[in-house]
């Protein structure tokens, strides 16, 4: 199985349509099967990103906000999407591999504890 996470810095990017950095990781029931790789797109384009997702045979997309039309398109193409995810990429990836991530997850580590 193959995951794609839209990223900004060390975190999941807030918007699918504005992202230009991606992390792609392959995994099976034992964990990661290879080192995750980072990909940079020439420019943010949701259409090109959707094409890339299909070309790379991604099975799970983890992102922040995504428009309904892109969500529907990818769902129609049998790609699972966990959207509205907020948190550091490494933790998000770890949870996804352990099948403990869901759409809308906000990780505790994403919060600024000082501001509470």
């Amino acid at each position: 199985m193959k995951i794609l996470i839209t990223i900004t810095g060390d975190n999941v990017a807030p918007r699918f349509d504005m992202v230009s950095a991606l992390l792609i990781a392959s995994y099976d029931s034992h964990g990661l099967t290879e080192k995750p790789r980072t990909l940079l797109m020439a420019r943010p384009s949701p259409e090109e990103l959707c094409s890339l997702i299909l070309k790379e045979n991604i099975t799970l997309v983890i992102c922040g906000g995504i428009e309904e039309r892109h969500y529907k398109y990818l769902s129609w193409k049998k790609v699972e999407i966990f959207d509205s995810v907020i948190g550091p990429v490494s933790e998000v990836l770890d949870l996804a591999i352990k099948n403990r991530l869901r759409a809308g997850t906000i990780l505790h580590s994403a919060r600024n504890v000082n501001s509470d």
Binding site: N11, P14, I86, I106, R111, N112, S115
Partner: peptide, 19 residues
């Protein structure tokens, strides 16, 4: 309750900036 303490750009999700 969900958004408290989370960086604002992850909640607002605007196109004003990316980072």
């Amino acid at each position: 309750e969900d958004a408290l303490g989370v960086p604002g750009n992850f909640i607002i999700r605007s196109d004003l900036h990316t980072r």
